[in-house]
Design a protein around this nucleic acid. Structure first.
Lengths: 219, 219
DNA sequence: GGGTCTTTAGACTCTAGAGTCCATTCGATT
DNA sequence: AATCGAATGGACTCTAGAGTCTAAAGACCC
């Protein structure tokens, strides 16, 4: 009670002390790092230590471990939306798709991102809402953006999905992510050389074009 | 010491008491069920209770929680190899591939299997060997079987992967699994109607054939 | 039937970690 | 300089759960 009241008043203060914000940010960052590496089981003591902050401060700011965890996930989900925007360039679909793949391989499936993903999957056993939130902010957002772009291209006659752009988008994401994820989520190495990235990106785009290119789907 | 010696002697006994085996099996089964549902954090007490066995017996048989967990995973990995064998039927590649997809959708990605997978991913943060073992017994085994089949078809001239059957196999698995896994691993619903399964299976096969059919790759 | 091994229930120990308390210090504001 | 809220650290409580121990009961072998 008194705890949540305190939290609210902090949030309502229009950023007069930036010190408070920086402390929250520091804790969130440390929490992300610790949770990511060791799962929900990390101790609050080690999170506090990693944030260079006393344990009491963590509790003052976030109330409980569960709340801290959820706040941290929400924070990261918000940060995630930015790079996911598929830039609406007016390039040939093949190039656009290769670029999406390239982006994913270079920024979306780093060992860092994957270990975070792994942790979320593990935690979603315990907190189903977390899994759902991550899905919405991550894969779903990506899928929606891609679906919209495909639909647009279809309207212009540069793609032909037979009227089911969502289905096509799913397939493209599947193409890009599959191997990487099944390996990476289980902790296997997923490093790729720039050459490999380039080859795969083009290849995915090429396969997609064969399936959904303008002359597609009319067998 | 005395503990591991006991375990060895039990394993060396050529199944004279089947009672002992059935007790181990019962514990393994209960452990699988509990770990699957709640992750590595379930208590040994609840596992013992679920197996209808005293806690001491669990410790007699498996020594420690970690050992029980690993024994359970090994047990399931062994059981897993059976259904994964891709039957080498001499059908048209398109039908064969659709059949593989169908098998996967009906048996390979049930909510049950996925929740087990989720648990493994979570636990692999803590026990990297577990992740590796699962990868070998699951995705990797599937991939290898498919790669071999594709290579064979390529030799006969019914497919053309440009000499990289492993790459093609990865893509096909990606095609099948993607959406399902990203949704299912995060706890989202993944039920599909038989119609939906049929549609997707054929579709995956079709897309694969467009990419790697005999006339493929020669742009 | 006696000897040996396992199982059982349940009490027990020990430790890690969540969350609390408090006396003190720090750092803005006035 | 005085004040007030926040942060500190470190001691503290309490609980859950891993693992052990024991006395009694079964089960099997000779």
């Amino acid at each position: 009670m008194s705890r949540s009241a305190a939290a609210v008043s902090i949030n309502n203060i229009p950023v007069s002390h930036s010190a408070i914000l920086s402390i929250r940010a520091r804790i969130l960052e440390a929490a992300a790092e610790m949770f990511r590496g060791q799962g929900y089981d990390v101790s609050m003591d080690s999170i506090a230590a990693a944030a260079n902050v006393s344990k009491q401060t963590v509790y003052n700011q976030f109330g409980s471990k569960e709340d801290l965890f959820k706040a941290m996930v929400a924070d990261r989900a918000a940060a995630m939306r930015a790079p996911l925007q598929v830039q609406v360039l007016d390039r040939h679909p093949r190039d656009m798709l290769a670029e999406v793949a390239r982006q994913y391989y270079t920024h979306g499936c780093t060992a860092y991102e994957l270990s975070y993903y792994r942790m979320i999957i593990g935690a979603s056993l315990q907190f189903p809402e977390i899994g759902e939130a991550y899905y919405e902010a991550g894969p779903k957002a990506m899928l929606d953006a891609l679906t919209q772009w495909i639909a647009r291209e279809e309207r212009v006659g540069r793609l032909d999905t037979g009227g089911d752009p969502a289905f096509a988008a799913e397939h493209f994401l599947g193409l890009i992510t599959a191997r990487i994820e099944s390996r990476g989520l289980l902790g296997q190495d997923i490093e790729m050389s720039p050459n490999e990235i380039e080859r795969r990106s083009r290849f995915c785009a090429e396969i997609f074009m064969r399936a959904f290119g303008p002359e597609g789907l009319n067998r």
